[in-house]
Design a protein around this nucleic acid. Structure first.
Lengths: 217, 217
DNA sequence: CATTTTTTCAGCCTCTGGACTGAGGGTGAA
DNA sequence: TTCACCCTCAGTCCAGAGGCTGAAAAAATG
């Protein structure tokens, strides 16, 4: 039985070292090499054609999701195991869509990581429990958020409300009459189940309904 | 010259392994051991009395900041180097206050980590540049946020505004007359430089002026 | 093509919000 | 004590907010 060819992708030297140490103690694993970025990963993967890649998501040059997509495009049998610290929705699902086979957190022990490698070559997936929660919730009949039944125009108005604009200002912003704005605001208030524009503005802010879509922490 | 006694604190096995590997290659460093949590760190530190501790901040049982404070209380000559992924204000400054001597990010290379250890025993500090930015901004003549000149009562009212309460509701919440509420609201609006209660509510929400003080991501 | 939803706008009515002015009681510092 | 600030409350006044009803043009849908 051939050894499993494994590659590491992570921009943290410390983490690469730790992972490498995990892998080198396994005699059924052939440690191929490591990459510091998504771009480097794609280059090396084309060169070495690894069986399994342990991939971080957040990196300087080219993130792990792009790299995953790129690598699988020319080497579709490669099993890519995401190994990262983050388990928020915005990271997990794009990674799955990109074709990742497993999703581990960096809290994983040596056994979990090497176990995931062996399972990957057998076609089995490993999902960290915290991530599994997210996925199950995604498939459960999720009650949709109140604002999801707003029309596109009502969303425009709600964004303005979130900026604290008055009806007059909104009408100028959207080039519509003040009466029309009032109608939209009334509909928004009833659809969101809130009492006044202030609560609607709070709702917009707490649910990230904003113009510039700037979201970070 | 005695070897430098170094201890590691991190709840990620992978990271501990990487850091350990950094340290074991240095013959002037005596690797004492490792801890998986802040509580364990304090216990081991009391036992081994290390010269330098490499400490993560975010851990399951007892965070790194508490541990730092605790360890320094009984072993004040210990140099504690924070080594974490985060560099937001809420993490950096409490760590410095707790008495940390250096602040590195996990993107640090082996040379940076071992270098910080050697500098620590000489009494020198190393601050990652991204963190240094934050610190410089903190010491720069910072224009104080508008809400810092609100009186305590006005802050109470502003929190209510942030919840979307009406004047009537605020008066009931705070057991004061509605006229009084109006006075406070007017003062708040002029101090914050906003036009109406809606903008005040947005301000409160975006600046984390809330009742429950619930902060997470 | 027929139907429904969305978007636009109107008039009417009520009430809250907020500006402005004024003022009495409490506390703490000069 | 005087001064300053904070908290409390009152009266007046008006523009804006929001509910209700109705309705026509536009766009999506079947």
């Amino acid at each position: 039985m051939d050894k499993i060819k494994v590659m590491i992708v992570d921009d943290h030297e410390m983490v690469r070292l730790g992972m490498k140490t995990y892998l080198l103690t396994e005699d059924r694993i052939d440690f191929l090499g490591e990459a510091k970025s998504g771009n480097e990963a794609a280059r090396l993967a084309k060169l070495y054609m690894p069986d399994v890649i342990l991939m971080d998501l957040l990196m300087e040059n080219g993130n792990g999701i792009e790299a995953t997509r790129k690598i699988l495009s020319f080497h579709p049998h490669c099993k890519i195991i995401i190994l990262t610290s983050y388990y928020d929705d915005e990271k997990v699902f794009p990674a799955i869509e990109a074709g990742a086979h497993s999703y581990l957190l960096k809290t994983a022990s040596a056994e979990e990581v090497t176990g995931a490698v062996y399972k990957a070559v057998k076609g089995e997936s490993v999902i960290a429990s915290k991530v599994a929660d997210k996925m199950l919730n995604r498939f459960r009949p999720q009650e949709k958020k109140p604002h999801e039944e707003l029309t596109t125009r009502e969303m425009d108005v709600l964004k303005c409300l979130g900026d604290g604009l008055t009806n007059q200002e909104i009408s100028e912003e959207l080039f519509i009459g003040i009466k029309t704005v009032k109608t939209h605001v009334s509909n928004i208030l009833s659809k969101l189940g809130v009492a006044d524009r202030t609560q609607a503005a709070i709702y917009a802010n707490r649910n990230g309904i904003l113009h510039k879509a700037g979201r970070k922490e």
